[in-house]
């Protein structure tokens, strides 16, 4: 049995699916097709790499700070107070 022909995509199709690819939202078939395209395409590969770097940068810069301790205490106290008011 011969394997099914692999899906081929061009640059425009690859760019159209750029974010869905980086977000891990594509079907396996399309994801593999894009991965093959990127391995062979000197134009698309750096653009995908830049966009991936941008998404990593945004996540790194926006997750630096946690909940301030006073707020954490305030939430705990509010839950305790609420529990005491409610019938078990």
């Amino acid at each position: 049995m011969t394997p099914a022909p692999q899906k081929e995509i061009n640059c425009a199709e690859a760019i159209e699916h750029l974010y869905a690819y980086l977000d891990g939202e594509l079907t396996t078939e399309l994801e593999l097709a894009i991965r093959r395209h990127l391995a062979a395409c000197a134009r698309c590969f750096p653009e995908f790499a830049l966009e991936r770097g941008f998404l990593r940068f945004v996540q790194a810069r926006t997750r630096l700070r946690g909940v301030p301790d006073p707020l954490r205490r305030r939430v705990f106290e509010a839950l305790f107070a609420d529990e005491r008011q409610q019938p078990g």
Binding site: L50, E51, F54, R61, L64
Partner: peptide, 25 residues
């Protein structure tokens, strides 16, 4: 297009590293 804007001067987007968290927020 970010890529079109930076591809000739900084295609890897190294300038990101200089942008601090407050600016992004």
């Amino acid at each position: 297009s970010l890529y079109r804007a930076v591809q000739e001067v900084d295609p890897e987007g190294r300038f990101f590293e200089q942008i601090v968290d407050d600016t992004v927020l």
